[in-house]
Structures are given as structure tokens and as C-alpha cells.
Design a protein around this nucleic acid. Structure first.
Lengths: 212, 212
DNA sequence: TAGATTGTTAATCGATTAACAATC
DNA sequence: TAGATTGTTAATCGATTAACAATC
């Protein structure tokens, strides 16, 4: 049974959960009833030991001698990752990257709900994005007072990221999905940051290709 | 002096290099002449030990008792990450994500050069993207024969990613920047994969926000 | 020289893997 | 029961951190 995590789950484990979910969803779609840790390991490219260790962070999902019930495992992972409710999120920066990334928030199974989008460029303000109207970032505090979001998606230039993060923290934002170059660090224990540095990712790929 | 890496550099070190470069470039822009490992550690949020260990993977950049010369360090890191030449890259999939991501390849200091873009949708083929015309993916083999690219950027749906990767491997692609949901794994020792799973990133953020 | 800071070796820490008893 | 596979403890591995001699 999927139970509550008794102790803090390590980041490497958390990062692997979405991959488990995706593969288990595929199994469910293929009407597979049961899967063993070694079968999953073969699909994921890791070890059966790791699969079992990971799942056991959340209590026993499996049945000894049998394996893991795909439907139950899928439900448990979905519950862990998407939870019951969708987290309210706002987008800061509605440039090309911001518009593209906002699409992910609306995708099925992400567990988020985009409630507002902000920009500081007069040309952007008032334009449509998804079902929303882009608002002036000057009205951010007002908006957050009325309907507090939990997560902010930062798609703004490096130099304004630090200041904006500060403002958002003061407005009670709990999580950042940061696409700016700025290295945002979790400021306080109650705040979580996911940096997506596409430029860094590309440069490290370049290094590896040049040094095969 | 920046010398050639004598032994295989570990992936965690490689992943940190772009961040070092960004911060050292900022120092250079601010006309700082010298920086110590502890100063860099404070900027990066890691330890002075790690900074020195990381740099020493590539031979001594620094001077005992003094620190690291910012200009030389910057040059060394740029040489490592961007190298002398720009790697030829092609884009597969010119949807919204593909178009946005292709912009990063052209950005200064990335070390790549986008030479062609492909799609299979008739509506896309023939349209302009950057300075390129989107080509029919059916002509991919022909194109690669004439001007072989080193890297492919995959911005295609999950279900076509595996087959496409297979084709690209046979055409001699050495590196993949993979944005598809498909978990691309490095097929052979001479091939490098950088998976950017935005959906996974978002889901893991969701887990962490819900479990602060 | 004295002070500072690197380069490098040794110690620690955490994550992964292996082993095996529990049990379906 | 016998076979299979989990849950969990122990061993290994690798990465990070600490320590210190080398040296500018």
C-alpha cells in the first residue's frame, strides 16, 4: 500500500519518479497486470535494487513473490506526483520561451494550473496567451493578494531574475520553475527551486561531443 | 595552464563547467583580475574544495598563494566548452518547442551552428525558421550525406523519437539534445545524449512543493 | 620571510548495488 | 511445498569535503 513517506526522500529518488510513472503508464496502457523490479529496471536502464529501494521510500507497493500490480503502482505514483489538487501557477515573462513553456503547465498529468501571466513590455500586456490575458507585472502584488499562486515560472532575462524572485518570495511563492540564466537558489527551507538552464545543458552536451 | 584532461572527467564535473564559465564571465565583465576558489565557491554555492578539484581535472589553472587569473580562467573554460569550432547541428521537429529551442543554438557562446531543420508535416515544410527553410524529413539521409551534422536536436513526439534516433545514429550523429518524452539512452560508446525532460522536471517540482 | 592559496592526498558522506531473509 | 520476488540490511562505489604540504 502506498503510505506516507516517513523520512525525507532524497532528490535523486524524486527526480526518478516521473520516469517511473511514464513507464508504468505505458504498461497500464498495454494492459500488463504485473511487473517485477527487474523488468522495470530493464525498461528504465537502472538496477532492480534501485527500483525496489526507490519504491520502498514510500512504503511497499509490491507483493513478495509476485511483483508490482501495475494499476496500483500507477495510482500510487500519480498520487505522489500529481497529488489530489492542481497547484496554481503564474508565468512571469511572456516571450517566446515563456509562451512555449506555459504549454507544459496545461499538459495532462503535470499537476499544475496556470492562473495568470505577466510581462513588463507594453506590447505584450493585454495580448492573449492560452485562455489568459497577459497582465502588467506592476499589478503582480495585487493579483497575488487576491488569488495567491503557489508556483512561479520564470521566463525572464538573467538580470531581472534575482529581483523578481525576491518580490515573488515576499508574495508567498513556494516553488520556482526557473528558465532564466540566473542561478536561483532555494532561499528558505520552505521554498523549492527547479532550475532549467538550457544554455548550460547545451554547453555540456557540446563538451561531451567534442570529447567522446 | 589549461592542459588536456588526462583521464575521463565525471559527468557531475562537466555539468558544473557552464556555471563556472557564466560566473567567471561576469567577473571578467566587472574587470576583476583575480579570484580565489573560496570566492568562487561563495558565488556558486558550493565549496572551495570542489572548485579546486573541478578545475584540477583539466590541469592547474591557478597560481598558489594568488588564486585564479580571471582572464586566463575564462579563456580556459571557453576553450573547454565552446572549443575552437562550432558543431554543426540539425533540428528535427519544427513545432512550437522546436522553434523556441532552435533559438538557443544560435545564441552566443553556445558552440553550435544550426545548419538545417526538418519536419514531416506538409504545412511546416517550406516555411522559414531563422535563416533556414524547413525541409521534408524524408530528405534527411540525402542531406546528411552531403553535409554531415554532428548533433541532432529532437523536438518530436515520444512515439517517433526512438525510430528517428535510430535513423540519425545510422547517419553518423554523435550527440542528441533530446526534448522528446522518450528516454533516449546513449546507444554506443561514441554517442552522447542530453535528455531535457521538461515534463519530468515540472512533475518533480510539483512533488517537492507538495511535500515541503 | 610571512601570508595566502593552490594542487593533491586522505577522510567522509551519500547513493547505488548486492545479498538474503521474509513471504506470497 | 517450491519458486519467485519483494522489503530491507549490508557492502560497495563514487562524489564531496577536509586537510595539508607545496609554492607563489
Amino acid at each position: 500500500m502506498a503510505t506516507y513517506p516517513q523520512h525525507k526522500i532524497s532528490l535523486p529518488v524524486i527526480k526518478r519518479l516521473p520516469r517511473y510513472l511514464r513507464h508504468v503508464q505505458l504498461l497500464q496502457k498495454a494492459c500488463v497486470e504485473t511487473v517485477s523490479s527487474s523488468e522495470l529496471a530493464a525498461m528504465l536502464g537502472n538496477t532492480a535494487s534501485q527500483v525496489r529501494q526507490d519504491f520502498n521510500c514510500f512504503g511497499g507497493f509490491g507483493q513478495q513473490g509476485v511483483g508490482y500490480n501495475v494499476v496500483l503502482l500507477c495510482k500510487a505514483l500519480e498520487q505522489l506526483l500529481v497529488g489530489g489538487s492542481h497547484l496554481p501557477a503564474i508565468l512571469i515573462g511572456t516571450g517566446r520561451l515563456g509562451c512555449t513553456i506555459s504549454g507544459f503547465l496545461g499538459s495532462t498529468g503535470a499537476g499544475f494550473h496556470l492562473t495568470a501571466a505577466f510581462d513588463n513590455a507594453p506590447a505584450q500586456i493585454g495580448t492573449a496567451l492560452g485562455g489568459l490575458v497577459v497582465q502588467d507585472v506592476a499589478t503582480l502584488a495585487e493579483y497575488c493578494g487576491a488569488s495567491p499562486p503557489e508556483v512561479a515560472v520564470l521566463c525572464i532575462p538573467e538580470d531581472s531574475a534575482s529581483g523578481m524572485a525576491q518580490v515573488l518570495l515576499s508574495l508567498g511563492i513556494k516553488g520556482f520553475w526557473n528558465f532564466s540564466q540566473y542561478d536561483l537558489a532555494a532561499a528558505s527551507p520552505g521554498v523549492v527551486v527547479e532550475n532549467v538552464h538550457l544554455g548550460d545543458s547545451l554547453q555540456s552536451l557540446g563538451y561531451r561531443v567534442r570529447n567522446i
